[in-house]
Simulated scan of single mutants.
Amino acid sequence: MTTLQSIPEAALDQLFRKARTVHAFKPVPITDELIHKLYDLLKWGPTAFNAQPARYVFVRSEEAKAKLKPAVSAGNTAQTLAAGVTVIVAHDSRFYEHLPSLFPAYDAKPFFEKSAEAAQATAFRNSSLQGAYLILAARALGLDAGPQSGFNADLVDKAFFPDGRYRANFLVNLGVADHAGTFERGPRLAFDDVAEIV
């Protein structure tokens, strides 16, 4: 019988049980080295056809934050400006151009070239997955994360992706939490409320 090898309980706590969505950050800088380490970890998460459609803009400088600010909802502005870095998780609408090298098993590129609907659905779904991998990778490296959809995607696209190829999916604030601004943990639905084994 195969024995499953789980990661330690402390790691499970750090990734899931004790991790929180952060709404306030301490003024701790996020280095280039840590950003590269983060990407080098999250990139291993699986995507359909190994397509890796997500694209990331790490908004860290004051100038870049000022560019992002008009697109962020009023309730999210303070935490976004305070975060060590805010990641724009976007997707590449022409991700399939990389498939010949990323997915050499067979030629999947023509399928997406011929179907804008399939390309959009695949890009959005898998960039969402990759954004989730980013959150878990950040937590694994000791960072706190505050993902948000409270922003104007059209304004982000105009400011950061004016050629229209990339499109914003969601934002993730990263840094070191100031838990004075952390809300009480919300409840979670029980297994029987959301799942069944058939």
Rank of each mutant, 00 (worst) to 15 (best):
Y96V: 00
E97C: 05
H98W: 09
L99Y: 00
L99G: 03
P100N: 06
S101T: 08
S101Y: 06
L102V: 05
P104V: 00
P104M: 01
D107Q: 05
A108R: 02
P110E: 03
P110Q: 07
F111H: 12
F111E: 13
F112N: 08
F112H: 13
E113I: 00
K114V: 02
K114E: 04
K114W: 03
K114D: 01
K114I: 03
E117D: 14
E117A: 14
A118E: 04
A119Q: 12
A119L: 08
A121S: 12
T122V: 06
R125T: 13
S127A: 15
S128V: 11
L129Y: 11
L129E: 13
L129R: 15
Q130H: 12
G131V: 02
G131E: 10
G131S: 12
A132P: 00
Y133K: 07
Y133H: 15
I135E: 04
I135V: 14
L136H: 11
A137I: 15
A138N: 06
A138I: 12
A138F: 11
A138L: 12
A140M: 02
A140L: 05
A140G: 13
L141H: 07
L141R: 13
L141S: 07
G142N: 14
L143P: 01
D144M: 13
D144V: 08
D144A: 15
G146T: 04
G146E: 03
P147I: 02
Q148H: 04
G150R: 09
G150Q: 04
G150C: 11
F151C: 07
F151V: 05
F151R: 09
N152P: 00
N152S: 05
N152R: 12
N152W: 08
A153D: 07
D154C: 01
V156G: 09
V156T: 03
D157T: 07
D157V: 09
A159E: 05
F160C: 03
F161D: 07
F161P: 06
F161H: 09
F161A: 07
P162H: 13
P162V: 02
P162R: 13
G164R: 15
R165I: 03
R165N: 10
Y166S: 08
Y166H: 14
Y166I: 01
A168E: 03
N169K: 08
F170T: 10
F170L: 11
L171M: 09
L171K: 15
L171S: 10
V172H: 12
V172W: 12
